[in-house]
Amino acid sequence: MTWMQYLPPLLKGAQVTVMISLSSIAIGAILAFAAGIARTSSNPILSGIAFVYIVLFRGTPLLVQLFWFYYALPLIGISFDPITTGIMTLSLLTGAFGAEVVRGALLAVPHTQLEAARALNFSKSYTLWHISMPQAVIEMMPAFGNLAIQNLKDTALVSLISIADLTFQAQSMRNITLDSATVYTLTLLGYFIIALCIMLIVRFIEMKLRRGPAFPRSAHS
């Protein structure tokens, strides 16, 4: 077998990897905003729930989380198929790290902006969505970029709950051909190309947000 023949199964695996990564990044982003905003809330119950969620998922290994959702949860009668389990676990993990990014960026909005908003009698939710968030989102982008790449690389672990992603396909190809060098080189290359695309997308979004005279720092970055 030549390396050309390795490509179709690897590409099929890459598709699964991209699908899992993109969906868990998207769901993770929603969770990140929800938990990050809840953490800055003055409501202790909301903030407490978000805190427990963040601490639990940041403080435990992804592999164990995957096994827990895949093997332990069914024992109390809740079970999902492997793809759902994979996307769910990765979303929760990305969301937990993302929540800290959202919280940090919201806290970094100058206090004087909040005082100006209060002097104009804006409500708390208006201040959050129209004053703080537009300024904070731009600051979140570099950290979100890192999390997205981290998420992509973490997807390799879902091969261990029998999902046929890029890593899973690579393993099976190697078992058949014993050609470790070629198979794993192609696999690395595959992940790298996907990562490159994610980096470009995040960079593009950041440039879009920074464009215009509102945030003149863009001229230097």
């Binding site: 004087t112 902006q113 005082e115 100006a116 209060r118 002097a119 104009l120 009698n121 409500s123 004053i131 537009p134 300024q135 509102a214 945030f215």
Partner: peptide
């Protein structure tokens, strides 16, 4: 507080305009 503030306005030393608007 909303009711109290509706009668009062303030101009700050450092202007505090909203930079994204």
């Amino acid at each position: 507080l909303h009711k109290i503030r509706s009668n009062v306005g303030m101009v700050f030393q450092s202007f505090n305009l909203f930079p994204h608007m």
